[in-house]
């Protein structure tokens, strides 16, 4: 009996002592956190994508409060939330609702429709695939389809299509540009379409038309039909490749209808 009482008492005593120690430590080493930081963190997307140049959303929130960065640097946050953050900070929102969102597009639709030069048996990483004889696609501008961009996207906005090329899901993209940084082919670009129908050229090949036709079923052959069809003259051909000027494009979709190789796509 005595032993039990002793055991219980000693454990309780130890517990009490450590509890007091912890209570004292939490008071002693307490760090005052700005309540605004907590609020701002709630409005930030929390994906820690790093596009602002800071380690993550928490450090971005701190930097905002300390006035060391600008709200506009966050590309992932929605306009609505930015408005709220601006209210917390007592500043005017940098981009009201007028600013059009930038969206990444992967400008290649090749995949299985683009011929293979050889059977690639290396690592499943695009940066590795391009090291062997310049990639296994006949077209040297083609996506090598190993999905590195899919893995780095913090917003799960890129999906592999059945054809073996990844595609950005427009409404999920938060313009952090991480995919652009890893793509060894440099075929991912940011576009800023204004209209409801967001069209883009799904090809990056600067080869001549005949060469493109030989390599790929869905490549831009620079035939110029879209240029003629465009009512606002937003499309030009540069280096054997159609290019859309998004300042002009109204999203009428006429170019999509005339394109013979179905290179022009909707997001």
């Amino acid at each position: 009996m005595k032993a039990i009482i002793f055991a219980v008492a000693s454990l309780a005593g130890l517990g009490l002592a450590f509890g007091l120690l912890l209570a004292w430590a939490s008071k002693k080493f307490h760090i005052e956190e700005d309540p605004r930081v907590v609020k701002i963190k709630d409005f930030l997307p929390g994906a820690n994508c790093g596009a602002c140049g800071l380690a993550g959303c928490a450090s971005f929130a701190e930097a905002l409060v300390e006035n060391k960065t600008e709200l506009a640097f966050c590309v992932a946050c929605s306009g609505e939330n930015k408005q709220k953050i601006a209210e917390v900070l007592g500043i005017s929102s940098p981009d009201k609702d007028t600013q059009v969102k930038k969206i990444a597009v992967i400008a290649c639709g090749g995949g299985t429709r683009c011929k293979n030069k050889f059977d690639y048996q290396g690592l499943e990483d695009c940066r590795s695939a391009v090291l062997y004889l310049g990639g296994h696609k006949e077209c040297k501008y083609a996506c090598v389809g190993q999905g590195t961009c899919i893995r780095v996207c913090p917003f799960d906005a890129i999906k592999m299509q059945p054809e073996g090329v990844p595609k950005v899901i427009g409404h999920k993209c938060r313009s952090c540009e991480k995919c652009i940084a890893v793509c060894p082919r440099n075929i991912i670009e940011m576009i800023q379409p204004k209209g409801k129908n967001k069209v883009y050229i799904n090809c990056s090949s600067q080869d001549k038309g005949a060469q493109v036709m030989k390599n790929c079923k869905v490549g831009c052959i620079a035939c110029g039909k879209c240029v003629k069809a465009c009512p606002v003259k937003a499309i030009t051909i540069e280096n054997n490749l159609a290019k859309i000027d998004y300042a002009e494009c109204i999203g009428c979709k006429k170019c999509i209808d005339v394109c013979p190789t179905k290179v022009i796509c909707l997001i």
Binding site: K117, F118, D119, Y120, Q121, Y132
Partner: peptide, 14 residues
């Protein structure tokens, strides 16, 4: 490009 019997050769790392 000429291929042996239309088969793609395998390319992997050394």
């Amino acid at each position: 490009m000429s291929k042996i019997a239309g088969i793609n050769l395998k390319v992997s790392s050394s």
